[in-house]
């Protein structure tokens, strides 16, 4: 057997691939589910915080800024570990899925708030003044005039950040979630063959390559006029 054959036999072993493909596909759907839950919760919570912050209540804003800074500074895996391995000490047990979901949602929330806030403050003051001078109230001005402009501005950075954080779903394998990476690693240790890892990598490419390319497109489509 030549080296090349041995390489193929290790990484592209048809028998092993056939055996573990179903597990990887299950993991694929689990990854998508986890990612969807994270995006929903994270973006919604982040937007809500940004709106709250625009009310300009000082104490509330300090609290928001602290929470946002906290989840931008902590590595996601540390948050997952704290929730999964730490919380039981407080008598609260989370499943691996719940811990990963909560941790990554909090991280996405923090980045989303930061991005939206930057977008809201980047809308010129004159927009507020023009709207208010026609008699529009704070809420109408915010939702009908300012927010739509902010949203347009934040789409590229938000898309990229969401993609980056969604890839963090792989971290859930550390807390025994059988998403793609978890399933692949289990496959490797049962079969003593790295083919399941190859399958896993392919699964991630199938999932994220289109998303990354979409992110590229969004960046040019919504390019800022300088």
């Amino acid at each position: 057997m030549t080296n090349w054959d041995r390489f193929l036999d290790s990484f592209f072993n048809a028998r092993v691939a056939a055996e573990y493909l179903p597990k990887i596909i299950e993991g694929f759907w689990l990854t998508i589910l986890l990612a969807a839950c994270i995006i929903l919760a994270g973006v919604a919570a982040g937007l809500a915080l940004a709106v709250l912050r625009s009310l300009g209540i000082r104490v509330l804003n300090w609290a928001i800024i602290f929470v946002v800074d906290l989840f931008r500074a902590l590595p996601p895996l540390v948050i997952i570990a704290l929730l999964y391995f730490g919380l039981p000490a407080a008598g609260l047990s989370l499943s691996g899925f719940a811990a990963a979901w909560l941790a990554l949602s909090l991280v996405l929330m923090a980045f989303t708030e930061e991005i939206f806030w930057a977008g809201i403050t980047a809308v010129p003051k004159g927009q507020w003044e023009a709207a208010r001078s026609t008699g529009l109230g704070f809420l109408d001005t915010f939702t009908l005039v300012v927010l739509p402009q902010a949203v347009r501005m934040v789409i590229p950075p938000l898309t990229n950040r969401t993609i980056a954080i969604t890839k963090g779903t792989a971290l859930a394998s550390v807390v025994a979630v059988q998403e793609i990476l978890g399933a692949a690693q289990a496959g490797v240790s049962f079969s003593f063959n790295p083919t399941p890892l190859t399958l896993g990598a392919v699964a991630y490419l199938v999932l994220f390559l289109p998303v990354v390319i979409l992110g590229r497109w969004v960046e040019t489509r919504f390019a800022w006029k300088r």
Binding site: K167, V174, I180, A184, V188, N193, L197, G200, Y204
Partner: peptide, 24 residues
Amino acid sequence: VDLFRSLPPLVLLVFVYAGLPFAG
């Protein structure tokens, strides 16, 4: 660039760490 932006870093790490030994 897109290949390595699509693979989660942990996947890449595990692939290198657990996979390369199989390639000797």
